[in-house]
Design a binder for these strands. Structure first.
Lengths: 115, 115
DNA sequence: CCGCATCGATACGATAGCGTAACGAAATTG
DNA sequence: CAATTTCGTTACGCTATCGTATCGATGCGG
């Protein structure tokens, strides 16, 4: 439970977006970031189909995002041995670190807010 | 000044990103959103050059983003009559409404946080 | 004036993402 | 087992954005 004023809310988004653009060359899209956060903040297992439904997008969108973020080392894929049609998305150290930095950035910018 | 825990920070970003992807078809990139917030939250005047420096990106990035967001009615451009080399970026009703909705979304998701 | 700097826009080739449709592999069903 | 469903991926054509380089227009300084 977190009470925010309109000024605080947009101010926070502003400063964090700004720093994210300036500091992080990876330039993840909003969709990619949403997928990444979903994978790391919601209990597994995560599948392509499940993520697609959750975000309200088509499956190729998820596949592509996983391709890209996989190359960046932010996630991994493994076949589900119990049902080999499925692919289970796994977290990585790199991904956890990436989100930890994002969290630190949000906290820092929240602290620096002058409402 | 806003005190956030790591869980709150990422949880907030998660839920807002998720809703933004689900509800807003416009799908602004992080760069575009950062530009938009800069225009609306920082006192004018705003120029292409200034925004480029502020975000740490090249000028064509700003021009393209303004093209796109202009078509969406989120910003407008006007030549600066005092120095006709400059272009001054103006806010629009539509843009203000868009950010107001975003603010509402952030506030609502902050309120719904279960830390 | 006339060079020179500055501004935003444009051209260019390359890359990434999109939605729709179809595919192969694997599981389920009757 | 054959037929069907389910799952993730790939193919396709299209659009948007990227970075670099350059452009035309405008202002400025000697």
């Amino acid at each position: 439970m977190l009470e925010l004023t309109a000024s605080q809310a947009l101010g926070l988004w502003h400063s964090v977006s700004l720093q994210q653009v300036r500091l992080d060359g990876r330039d993840l899209s909003l969709r990619q970031l949403a997928i990444l956060l979903e994978i790391y903040l919601v209990p597994p297992p995560h599948t392509v189909r499940g993520l697609a439904a959750r975000l309200g997008v088509t499956k190729p969108v998820i596949t592509r995002a996983l391709d890209t973020m996989g190359e960046l080392g932010l996630v991994t894929r493994e076949r589900d041995e119990r049902d080999r049609r499925n692919v289970v998305i796994k977290r990585t150290i790199n991904g956890a670190l990436y989100l930890e930095k994002l969290g630190d950035l949000i906290i820092a910018q929240g602290r620096a807010l002058t409402p």
